[in-house]
Computed example of a mutant assay.
Amino acid sequence: MTPPTPYLPPPSPALSAADQEALTELYVRGTPANTLRAYERDLLYVTAWKTARFGTAPDWPESEATALAFILDHARDLGGAPDTDIARQAAQALITQGLRKSLACPAPSTLDRRIASWLAFHRMKNLPSPFDAPQVKQARAKARRAAARAPAPKSQHPITRDVLEQLLATCRGSRRDCRDRAILMLGWASGGRRRSELTALMREDVSLKEFEKHGLVWLSLLETKTTGKGETPRLVLKGRAAQALVHWIEVGQIKDGPLFRPVSKADRMLKRRLSPDAIYQIIKHRLKLAGLPEDFATPHGLRSGFLTQAALDGAPIQAAMRLSLHRSVVQAQKYYDDVDIAENPATDLLG
Rank of each mutant, 00 (worst) to 15 (best):
P61R: 03
P61Q: 03
P61A: 04
E62A: 09
E64W: 03
E64R: 13
A65L: 06
A65D: 08
A67S: 06
A67C: 08
F70H: 00
I71S: 07
L72F: 15
D73V: 11
H74Q: 11
H74M: 07
A75S: 14
D77N: 12
D77W: 05
L78K: 06
A81Y: 02
P82C: 09
P82V: 10
D83F: 03
D83T: 07
D83L: 04
T84K: 09
I86S: 15
R88M: 01
R88Q: 12
A91F: 00
Q92L: 12
A93K: 04
A93D: 06
A93P: 01
L94H: 08
T96Y: 00
Q97G: 12
L99Q: 01
L99K: 06
L99S: 09
K101I: 09
S102I: 03
A104Y: 02
A107F: 01
P108I: 00
P108D: 03
S109A: 15
S109C: 11
S109P: 07
T110Q: 08
L111Y: 02
L111K: 00
R113H: 14
R113K: 12
R113C: 13
R114S: 14
I115M: 09
I115T: 06
S117L: 02
L119D: 15
L119K: 13
L119T: 13
A120M: 08
F121R: 01
H122R: 10
R123N: 15
L127D: 10
S129T: 14
S129W: 02
P130A: 10
F131M: 11
F131P: 11
D132Q: 15
Q135A: 15
Q135L: 14
A139I: 09
A139Y: 08
R140K: 14
A141K: 15
A143H: 06
R144L: 03
R145I: 12
A147F: 07
A147N: 10
A147H: 01
A148C: 03
A148Y: 04
A148I: 06
R149N: 15
A150K: 14
P151N: 11
P151V: 07
A152I: 13
P153S: 07
K154I: 10
K154M: 11
K154P: 11
S155G: 10
S155C: 09
S155T: 12
H157V: 13
P158W: 04
I159W: 01
R161M: 09
R161P: 04
D162K: 03
V163Q: 10
V163R: 11
Q166R: 14
Q166H: 09
L168I: 12
A169F: 06
A169L: 08
R172Y: 05
G173S: 08
S174Q: 02
S174Y: 00
C178Y: 00
C178T: 04
C178I: 01
C178M: 01
D180Y: 02
R181L: 06
R181N: 01
R181C: 07
A182W: 00
